Amino acid sequence: MIIDAHQHFWRLERGDYGWLTPELAPIYRDFGPSDLAPHLARQGIGGTVLVQAAPTLAETEYLLELAGESDVVRGVVGWVDFEATSAPEEIARLARHPKLVGLRPMIQDIADDDWMLDPVLAPAFEAMIRHDLTFDALVLPRHLPRLRRLLARHPDLRCVIDHGAKPEIAAGRFDAWAGEMAALARETRAWCKLSGLLTEAGEGAGRAELEPYVAHLVAQFGPARLVWGSDWPVLTLAASYEAWFEMARSLIPDAEDRRAVFGGNAAGLYRL
Results as ranks from 00 to 15, higher is better:
M1E: 09
M1T: 14
I2L: 15
H6Y: 07
H6L: 06
R11E: 14
R14H: 14
Y17V: 10
L24D: 03
A25S: 14
A25P: 03
P26E: 02
G32Y: 06
P33E: 07
S34F: 08
D35I: 09
D35E: 12
L40C: 02
A41C: 07
R42Q: 12
G46R: 13
V49I: 15
Q52M: 06
A54M: 03
A58R: 12
A58V: 14
E59F: 08
Y62L: 13
E65P: 03
L66T: 14
E69C: 11
S70R: 15
S70M: 04
V72G: 00
V76Y: 02
W79P: 00
D81I: 13
E83W: 12
S86V: 15
E89Q: 15
E90W: 03
R93N: 03
R93C: 04
K99H: 10
L100N: 02
L103E: 00
R104Q: 01
M106D: 04
Q108D: 10
D109P: 03
A111Y: 09
D114C: 09
L121E: 00
A122V: 14
A122E: 09
A124Q: 04
A124I: 05
A124M: 07
F125Y: 15
E126D: 13
A127N: 04
I129Y: 00
D132S: 15
L133P: 03
F135K: 01
D136F: 10
A137Q: 02
L138Q: 06
L140I: 11
L147K: 02
L147I: 13
R148L: 12
R149A: 13
L150Q: 01
L151D: 01
L151Q: 00
H154P: 03
P155M: 09
L157D: 00
V160Y: 02
D162V: 10
P167M: 06
P167N: 05
E168T: 12
I169F: 02
A171M: 13
G172H: 11
F174T: 11
W177R: 04
A178I: 08
A178M: 10
G179R: 09
G179Q: 13
E180I: 11
M181A: 04
T188M: 04
R189C: 09
W191L: 08
C192I: 15
C192L: 15
L194E: 04
L194R: 01
S195A: 14
G196Y: 06
T199K: 07
E200T: 03
A201Y: 05
G202I: 05
G206M: 04
R207G: 00
E209R: 14
L210S: 01
E211H: 11
P212R: 07
Y213V: 03
A215S: 13
A215Y: 10
H216C: 12
L217Y: 06
L217A: 09
V218T: 11
A219T: 07
F221D: 01
G222K: 08
P223K: 01
P223A: 15
A224F: 12
R225M: 08
R225N: 00
R225K: 09
L226V: 11
V227G: 00
W228C: 01
D231T: 08
W232H: 06
V234L: 10
L235K: 05
T236A: 09
A238D: 03
S240E: 04
A243R: 14
W244I: 03
F245S: 02
R249H: 12
A255M: 08
A255E: 14
A255N: 09
D257I: 02
G263P: 01
N265G: 08
N265M: 08
G268H: 13
L269E: 00
Y270Q: 05
R271N: 11
